[in-house]
Amino acid sequence: NNDALSPAIRRLLAEWNLDASAIKGTGVGGRLTREDVEKHLAKA
Score class of each variant (00 low, 15 high):
S6N: 06
A8I: 10
L12I: 06
T26G: 02
G29P: 03
G27N: 03
E35R: 13
L12S: 00
L13K: 00
L12W: 06
A14M: 13
L5H: 06
H40E: 06
T33W: 02
A14W: 14
A44D: 07
S6V: 05
L13G: 00
K43C: 13
D19K: 07
R31H: 06
R11T: 08
D19I: 07
K43R: 13
K43T: 12
I23S: 01
R11Q: 14
A4I: 14
D19Y: 06
N2K: 11
S21W: 09
N2P: 13
A44N: 12
D19F: 05
H40M: 07
A44V: 15
P7I: 11
A8Q: 10
P7F: 07
G30M: 03
R11K: 14
N17Q: 09
S6E: 13
G30Y: 01
A22S: 13
G30L: 02
L41F: 07
R34W: 14
E38P: 01
G25D: 02
A44I: 15
L32S: 00
G30N: 05
V28R: 10
G25A: 10
L41N: 03
S6W: 07
A8P: 04
D3W: 04
L41W: 08
G29L: 07
A44E: 11
E35M: 10
V37T: 00
S21R: 09
R34F: 15
N2S: 12
H40P: 00
L5F: 07
R34E: 11
S6H: 07
T26N: 04
I9M: 07
S6Y: 04
L18H: 04
E35G: 08
L5N: 05
N17W: 04
G30Q: 04
G29T: 04
A44H: 13
R11N: 10
D36L: 02
S6L: 07
I9A: 02
S6T: 12
A22M: 14
I23T: 01
D3T: 10
L41S: 02
L32H: 00
A42V: 09
A20E: 09
D3G: 11
N1M: 12
D36P: 01
E15A: 13
K43Y: 12
I23G: 01
T26D: 02
R34C: 09
L13V: 04
K43L: 14
R34K: 13
H40G: 02
G27M: 03
R10C: 15
K39M: 14
N1K: 09
D36T: 01
G29E: 06
N17I: 03
N17P: 02
I23D: 01
A14L: 13
R31W: 06
A14D: 14
K24N: 09
D19N: 08
L18N: 02
A22F: 08
K43D: 11
P7W: 07
T26Y: 03
N1W: 08
R11E: 12
L13P: 00
L12N: 00
D19A: 07
G25S: 06
S21Q: 10
G30T: 03
S6I: 05
L32K: 00
L41Y: 09
V37G: 01
G25M: 04
E15H: 15
R11M: 09
L13R: 00
D36Y: 01
L12A: 03
S6F: 05
R31I: 12
G30E: 04
D3S: 10
V37N: 00
N1E: 14
R11S: 08
I23R: 01
R10K: 11
R11L: 11
E35Q: 11
K43E: 12
N2L: 12
R11A: 14
L18M: 06
A42N: 09
L32E: 00
G27K: 01
G27R: 01
L41K: 04
A42W: 11
K39R: 14
I9R: 01
V28D: 10
H40D: 01
E35W: 13
A44Q: 14
D36A: 01
V28I: 13
I9T: 03
R31V: 13
A42G: 08
D19H: 07
D3N: 11
K24T: 14
P7G: 07
V28S: 08
E38L: 15
S6Q: 05
L5A: 05
N1S: 13
N2Y: 07
K24M: 12
T26Q: 02
L41T: 03
V28H: 09
L32A: 01
I9N: 00
R10G: 04
E15S: 09
P7L: 14
E35K: 11
S6G: 07
V37K: 00
R34L: 15
S21L: 07
